[in-house]
Amino acid sequence: MTGRSPLSSRLLCGAAGVAGLFCVMELAGRSGLIDPIVFPLASTVVSRAAALAADGEFLADVASTLGAWAAGLLIAVLVAVPTGFLLGTLPRVEAALRPVLEFLRPIPSVALIPLALLLFSDRFDMKVAVIVYAAWWPVLINTMYGLKDVDPLAKETLRSFGFGRMAVLWRVSLPSTAPFIATGVRLAAAIALILAISAELLAGGASGIGTFIIEAGGSPDALEYIIAATIWAGIIGVVSNSLFTLAERRLFHWHLARTGGTR
């Protein structure tokens, strides 16, 4: 009774779950339940994905997608955070702009890709532009939301010690809003990846994971390539999400402790 059973380890169970899924897919293919021509074998896909990791061309595509993703995300944060602070500290401006923002926000960002294709001659710029547009919303909204959450008592404490508006902004508002901004950036990162791949699927021509997937469509083992590349897209998503979550926990453990958040 004192030894830890293997069932108590999340890691082991998770690995078993993944292995189980793999085996089921493989068996379904080998037994003919799913025709391997319609859907490739799990083992084929995994070995193809492994091979892609050493494929220079594919790596260049990944680099291109990640480049646009990082650039777009960075610009979005640089624009959205100051805007959020401006709107959050000037309630009259916010009240005036709110309806305009509320009309713009529901526009599905991918609908802008065809327009962006017309406006930008350079594919990379086009990608970055739509990413910036899509990624700035979660950062902006979370910044404004976080500012509303700043403890007025903390601000008044500092003001009572004779600090000015800017000092209060810098020492209280910014640090207490930072966790919210971080959450916004994490959400924006996932959206940015969606937009990057969408833009690549539609624009073609240039390089990127989306382009790779579209171009693979022409080859005889198209599906194998498509699924392998999709797996890599998923891995990139997982890694980016865990890095952001980890950074959030590290930087803002005080915030989690205060709100009792566990996730």
């Binding site: 991918v110 791949i197 897209a233």
Partner: peptide
């Protein structure tokens, strides 16, 4: 699954 960008 949730990390895969759906358009992919």
């Amino acid at each position: 699954g949730r990390a895969i960008p759906p358009p992919a």
